[in-house]
Write a protein that binds this DNA or RNA. Structure first.
Length: 465
RNA sequence: GGCGCCUUGGCGGAGUGGUUACGCAGCGGCCUGCAAAGCCGUGUACGCCGGUUCGACUCCGGCAGGCGCCUCCA
C-alpha cells in the first residue's frame, strides 16, 4: 500500500489470498500469471519454513456469466460449472499442484450475507429497493490503496442501478434478483445475489481466518476499484486491516497492449500448453518480474522452449541423485522435501548456487534474477562437472515449478531403435559414414535424436520429449 | 484531466553510483568423420536535455514517447 517492500514475520502464519478468475470463458495466459506467481510464492515460502497458506478464489456469480450463458442458451449455473472445471483442468496442467483453498462464491453465500448484515448494522451500508450498497463516504480511508481522491471517482457496475444509490461513489454489495437472471439466493433484503467485491472479503476471512492476513495478491488491473472496495468492506466491518501486504502482478501484453478478454487479443492457456508444453509456459511466466508487464508472443514462447530444452539437456548429463528423477509424478502441491537454506547436502559450489537462487526469490520474488543464477550455474557445471549439480538444479527448478524437467517424459528407446543405434555404431567403426548417417536419419524418423559422446552414442527423444 | 508505472544491446528481460545479469537469435572458434549436445570468444546496451557527484545507465529536475487504472477485466 505504501509501495514499499516489507519483511515477513517468520513466526506468524502467512495467509495469501489471490483473486482468481471469473469463470465465463476459458482462461488465457494473462489469467494464468497470478495463479503461477502466487502458487510459486507459497511454495517458496513453505520451503523456507513459513506456515504459508494460499487461497485463490473462483468468481462464479457475475453479470458476464449471465450474458455468456444466455448467448449459448444454457443455464448460467451450467456455464459456471463448465468453466470452473475448465479452469481447474487448464491450471492443473501447469503442474504446480492446487492452492490450499479454492473457494467458490456460490459456496460462500452465507458468510457474504452475514458480512453485509454487519456492514448495514454498523451504518456503512444501506438497503435500497432490494439492493444493498456500501456507503463509500462512511469509510474514511477510501482510496488509500489506489491513491485516488474520492472526488475523482464514480462507479457503477454497469448501468441503470445508479438511481438506487445515495451517492455515485457507492458500490453494490447485494443486487436484487432481476428478470432474466436464472440464479438467486435468499437474503434479509430479498432474493438476489452478491456484488462482485464482497465475495472476496467474505471468502478471504472464511478461508484464512482473522484479519489481517499477510499477503493479498491479484492483477494490477484490480487495484481499483476491486481491491479498494475489498479494503473498505473488510476494514469497515472488522475494524482491522484486510491484508498487510499487497502484491499486484503486471499484465501480459501483446504488442504493448494488455491482453484481455474485452480487447479480444487473447491467447488461451490451454492452447499455449498444447503447443509449447507446460514447462515452457511456466518458464515463460517466470522470465519476468511479477510486478512488470511481460511481452507475449510466439517468439517469447519459443525462447522459453529453448531455455527449457537446455535445462533438460543439463539434467540428462547431470542426473540428480534424488528420487525425483526416477520417481513418478510428484504429489500435487508438495513435491520433494526441498531442503531449507544451507541445509542442502550438496557441495559448496552447488549449495552456493542454490543460496543465490533463494536469495533472489527472497528479494521481492525476483524470478528472472533467480533464473539467471540457475543458468549461470548450469554453464559453470557444463564447463566442468560440479558435485551435486543435478540435485542443486532440481531444487532450483522445483522452486519455480519446473521440477518435471528431471523426469523422463517418455519411455526409453525400444529394441528396434537400440538395434539401429548399434548398427550405426558398427557402421561408424567401419568408417562407413554414409550408412551411419542413413541410420541416423532413420532414427530421426522414429523420433530419436542421436548424440555421440566420448562414452558412446545415446538416444534422446526429439522435440524436447 | 487524475492516480500509478515504464523506456536497457536484434528480441525477451534483470540489476547496480565506479566489475560480464541471464536467456534466445547472429557471427567466429573448439570438440566431432559429419552432426547434435556442450564449451570458448564476440557485438561502443542503457529515450532526450540539464543538474548533483571525483565518477551516473544507476540519484534529482525537465522533455519526449509508451502502458495500466479511473466501466467489466489476472
Amino acid at each position: 500500500m505504501s509501495g514499499e517492500r516489507r519483511v515477513l514475520d517468520p513466526s506468524e502464519e502467512v495467509g495469501i489470498y489471490a483473486c482468481g478468475p471469473t469463470v465465463y470463458s476459458r482462461i488465457h495466459i494473462g489469467n494464468a500469471r497470478p495463479f503461477v506467481v502466487f502458487s510459486l510464492l507459497a511454495r517458496f515460502l513453505k520451503s523456507e519454513g513459513y506456515a504459508a497458506r494460499l487461497a485463490i478464489n473462483v468468481t462464479d456469480i457475475n453479470d458476464k456469466i449471465y450474458t455468456a450463458a444466455a448467448e449459448r442458451g444454457i443455464p448460467s449455473g451450467e456455464l459456471a460449472r463448465e468453466m470452473t472445471a475448465a479452469y481447474f483442468e487448464d491450471t492443473g496442467r501447469l503442474g504446480l499442484g492446487r492452492p490450499d483453498a479454492e473457494p467458490l462464491a456460490t459456496d460462500t453465500i452465507k458468510p457474504i450475507v452475514e458480512l453485509i448484515s454487519d456492514l448495514v448494522e454498523s451504518g456503512n451500508a444501506y438497503e435500497s429497493g432490494g439492493d444493498v450498497y456500501f456507503s463509500v463516504r462512511s469509510f474514511e480511508g477510501y482510496g488509500k490503496l489506489s491513491h485516488r481522491p474520492t472526488e475523482t471517482m464514480e462507479q457503477g457496475e454497469g448501468d441503470d442501478a445508479g438511481s438506487l444509490k445515495r451517492d455515485p461513489l457507492d458500490f453494490a454489495l447485494w443486487k436484487s434478483h432481476k428478470e432474466g437472471e436464472d440464479t438467486h439466493w435468499e437474503s434479509p433484503w430479498g432474493p438476489g445475489r452478491p456484488g462482485w467485491h464482497i465475495e472476496c472479503s467474505a471468502m478471504a476471512e472464511e478461508v484464512l481466518g482473522d484479519l489481517p492476513f499477510a499477503i493479498h495478491g491479484g492483477g494490477s488491473d484490480l487495484v481499483f476499484p476491486h481491491h479498494e472496495n475489498e479494503i473498505a468492506q473488510s476494514e469497515a466491518a472488522r475494524g482491522r486491516p484486510l491484508a498487510k501486504v499487497w502484491m499486484h502482478n503486471g499484465m501480459i501484453e501483446t504488442k504493448a497492449e494488455k491482453m484481455s478478454k474485452s480487447e479480444g487479443n487473447i491467447f488461451q492457456l490451454s492452447e499455449a500448453l498444447d503447443r509449447f508444453g507446460s514447462e515452457a509456459v511456466v518458464a515463460y511466466l517466470v522470465s519476468g518480474h511479477y510486478r512488470q508487464p511481460l511481452a507475449f508472443g510466439e517468439e517469447q514462447l519459443n525462447e522459453a522452449v529453448a531455455r527449457v530444452d537446455r535445462l533438460r539437456n543439463f539434467l540428462r548429463s547431470n542426473p540428480p541423485a534424488s528420487a525425483v528423477a526416477d520417481g513418478g509424478p510428484l504429489p500435487p502441491g508438495n513435491g520433494p522435501e526441498a531442503p531449507g537454506r544451507g541445509e542442502g547436502a550438496h557441495s559448496g559450489e552447488a549449495a552456493h548456487a542454490v543460496d543465490r537462487f533463494r536469495d533472489a526469490l527472497a528479494d521481492d520474488f525476483n524470478t528472472p534474477r533467480a533464473m539467471s543464477e540457475l543458468f549461470d550455474f548450469v554453464r559453470t557445471a557444463n564447463h566442468e562437472p560440479v558435485a551435486g549439480a543435478g540435485d542443486a538444479v532440481v531444487e532450483m527448478l522445483w522452486l519455480v515449478g519446473l521440477e518435471s524437467l528431471a523426469e523422463a517424459r517418455q519411455s526409453g528407446p525400444d529394441e528396434g531403435a537400440l538395434g539401429l543405434l548399434a548398427e550405426r555404431e558398427q557402421a561408424r567403426a567401419d568408417r562407413n559414414f554414409d550408412r551411419a548417417d542413413g541410420l541416423r536419419d532413420e532414427l530421426a524418423g522414429l523420433g530419436w535424436e542421436v548424440r555421440d559422446s566420448a562414452e558412446g552414442a545415446t538416444l534422446v527423444p526429439r522435440n524436447g520429449g
